[in-house]
């Protein structure tokens, strides 16, 4: 579904992503794990068009998305929940969700997706008219995911959904990710919480200073000594 080949990204003189290749098949949950600064977020930004890659080839559902801007790529059905949630603080919950459906023209579809999001995140329902900036971190993360679901994407890029959240809320969020996946949504997950990410993933890639150093089935990586030592706390 998503094929990335020999991706290179520079920040000025810094070679942040050094020719990585990976792919995500339809229906999979794939994780990209690695330490802080390994280039996980940069990879996602390059895929969704928020930053320009220096070279490389990205294909989404058979279409070349190399030089497309972010607003065009999302319209192809590739949603992106950015790191740090980035909900629109000064818009209400409802307005945020409506922005999520900006690319959707059909009112009936918007209504259906809205109800679906409310069903997945009942907490948001209580806070519909509240400004997003007044929500708790967990609620903002739910809103960020809900907002991305509003356009009914075929594939979702999730960047650090567990960041800064209480463990019990992280469980909720990961449950929802799995629910979406069971309903047919393909997921590329970026996480520092490697244990959590691997436990729900089919496959994973390990990123280290801009290179993919390891890849394989998530269950194998969970039992790999090197991975255990470096990312799973021994």
């Amino acid at each position: 579904m998503l094929k990335v080949n020999d991706l290179n990204v520079y920040y000025g003189m810094i070679h942040a992503i050094k020719g990585i290749s990976f792919n995500v098949e339809e229906g999979e949950i794939v994780s990209l794990i690695g330490a802080n600064g390994a280039g996980k977020t940069t990879t996602l930004h390059a895929v969704s068009g928020l930053i320009k890659a220096a070279s490389g080839n990205s294909e989404f559902m058979g279409r070349n998305i190399n030089n497309m801007t972010a607003d065009k790529i999302v319209r192809l059905g590739l949603g992106h929940v950015p790191e740090g949630r980035r909900v629109f603080q000064e818009l209400t919950v409802d307005e945020n969700l409506d922005m999520g459906a900006y690319a959707v023209k059909d009112k009936a579809v918007i209504k259906r997706e809205y109800e679906r999001v409310m069903e997945l995140f009942p907490r948001l329902k209580e806070r519909r008219k509240q400004l997003a900036g007044t929500l708790s971190g967990g609620e903002q993360q739910m809103l960020a995911i809900g907002r991305a679901l509003m356009s009914h994407p075929k594939m979702l890029l999730l960047d650090e959904p567990s960041m800064g959240l209480a463990p019990i809320i992280v469980m909720d969020i990961f449950d929802i990710i799995q629910t979406c996946n069971k309903e047919g949504m393909t997921i590329l997950l970026v996480e520092q919480n490697a244990k959590m990410a691997l436990s729900i993933s089919d496959r994973a890639y390990v990123l280290e200073t801009g290179n993919i150093v390891m890849e394989g089935k998530a269950s194998d990586l969970l039992n790999d000594d090197k991975v255990k030592k470096a990312y799973l706390g021994g």
């Binding site: 068009g49 607003d71 980035r86 922005m99």
Partner: peptide, 23 residues
């Protein structure tokens, strides 16, 4: 909707782009 998109762009251009808004 366009008004909301303007407020969204004003707050966070990148996030607005991820909604499909042409900045």
């Amino acid at each position: 909707r366009v008004g909301k998109a303007m407020r969204a762009v004003s707050e966070d251009k990148g996030a607005a782009q991820l909604m499909g808004v042409n900045v």
